[in-house]
Design a protein around this nucleic acid. Sequence first.
DNA 1: ATGCCTAAGCCCCTTAGA
Length: 261
Amino acid sequence: MKIATYNVNGIRARLERLVEWLNETQPDVACLQEIKCQDDGFPIKDIEAAGYSAVWHGQKGFNGVAILSKTPITHIRNGLDGEPEDEHARYIEAEVADAAGRVVRIGNLYLPNGNPQPGPKFDYKLRWMERLRVHAAALLALEIPVVLCGDYNVIPTDADIANPAAMADDALMQPESRAAFRRLCAQGWCDALRQIHPTGPLWTFWDYQAGGWQRDAGFRIDHLLLSPELADRLVDAGVDKDHRGREKASDHAATWVKLTI
DNA sequence: ATGCCTAAGCCCCTTAGA
């Protein structure tokens, strides 16, 4: 079973590339972030034509998340608890079944960027991470197979960025952001990409600006965390880097895991 | 110290991204 996470940076602007990626890489489940469309603007017809069912949680102009699945999908929830006035569409959760009929819970998140820091946007990021920590603990307590994946907007260590000095003041690699991510992982989640590729460059994002892609000056912010019930089923993980170099590509690359049935 | 690009809405400039 292959599960992928992909910040598409605008699903309407990216539709042709997205369908092409689905056809070429055939994920069983695809978690999308930054769909940047309202619920009634989600291109469900094109997604279904590509062979997927979907649940989505959108908003006008920015943010927005969706989960695509080759098999029927059950919507569980939108959003995280703890801040009712927060209207950002950044979290969606669903259940799918693997080929053996076993249920897998999928949590798909688009964590706030947090720039500039310090400031209210960074405060919001840290509050959101705390809300995520609380929900993630509840998911672990279920003792079921869970993938908690998405655009975390956290560069976990200096090994996860080509040029740490250039981003030293960025919200993505502040000590508070990293500590919150470590605290989450320490609950018992497995960082699947680093489990399979413990060392070396492993980028999932290359900035459009300053020739980031051409210089391979990227970083790793898209993560797939596995609950213990899934961690021992992890057989492979990777990044679909090739698609990042194509015309009209997102600034992120899709990141995926393969799990045994 | 700043802009570098890109997408989308408020649509030819601004906001947001990372």
